[in-house]
Amino acid sequence: MAEVEEPPEGVDAAVPNGARIYDFMLGGKDNYLADRRVGEEMVNANPTAPLTARANREFLGRAVRFLAAEQGIRQFIDIGAGLPTQQNVHQVAGAVAPDSRVVYVDYDPVVVAHARALLSTADTVRVAERDLRRPEEILADPEVLGLIDFSEPVAVLLVAILHFVGPDDDPHGIVARLRAKMAPGSHLVLSHTASESPGEIMEAAQRGFRASGAPLTPRTRAGIGEFFDGFDLVDPGLVDVREWRPALGGGAAGLPELPWTIVGGVGRLR
């Protein structure tokens, strides 16, 4: 794969980056040699790692489609959005409801630069450069407030991001502060690495993401379920992401067993 063009100012392409490693796993082109080396080491240890990444991405699409089509949600905040790829949130939601409004949030300047370039002509999509570990700044950001009305139901998407928030940063407190801002009828979409994988698989993944400055913290299903305190989980609950409403597209049928387990769910705020 050819090296991408000159990185944005202030970005060190020699240092691997979690979002760009994920982009590599998804077959994207917005990554550098350092990212590919780490990604290749992870794939060598777990050849199905790209399937896990794609399964997680497909879960995101199905969840957004469900919320837009069946729950009438018209505002989405995708926190830890990662690099733009195919079937982004605004594309999936917009295909169901063209009036859907989406704010992408990420702390990575590469992600933000790519997203702003891609979405520069979209009136219903904005991008905010903020860190999940400081939720109050996200909730007060002008880009967020310019598009999101928190007096109405909103979907907050935390897809494959909380497992990069360690216990010292109080991940459950972060979700609670986001929840406190959400109106009844809002939804939380969440996926997270579960501590159910073989030790060598998780060690390889943790080693790779640690090199990118984003240590991976797997959690038990019970611990992940606690993020949904105050929410009612919609069927089928908290499950392997491939098992979450596969009839909506993608899904588990025909896929091999994946040793790296990511579970996901959607909760409705009471």
Rank of each mutant, 00 (worst) to 15 (best):
P7L: 15
P8N: 07
P16K: 05
A19S: 13
D23Y: 12
M25E: 04
L26I: 03
L26H: 05
G27V: 09
D30G: 06
N31Y: 01
R36Y: 02
P47T: 10
T48W: 04
T48S: 08
R54V: 08
R54S: 11
E58A: 08
F66H: 13
F66L: 14
A68Q: 10
R74C: 11
R101W: 05
R101N: 05
Y104D: 10
V105D: 09
D108T: 11
H114L: 07
R116N: 07
A117D: 06
L119Q: 10
S120A: 15
T121N: 05
D123I: 02
D123W: 02
E129H: 11
P135D: 05
P135A: 11
I148A: 04
S151N: 08
E152H: 13
V154I: 14
A155L: 03
V156R: 00
V165K: 07
D170F: 01
I174Y: 05
A176N: 04
V189C: 07
L190S: 13
T193Y: 08
A194F: 09
E200F: 13
E200A: 15
M202K: 07
R210C: 09
A211V: 01
A211L: 10
A214E: 15
P215K: 02
R219D: 09
E226M: 11
F231K: 04
V234T: 14
G237W: 02
V239Y: 05
A252I: 13
L258V: 11
I262S: 03
L269V: 04
R270F: 04
R270P: 00
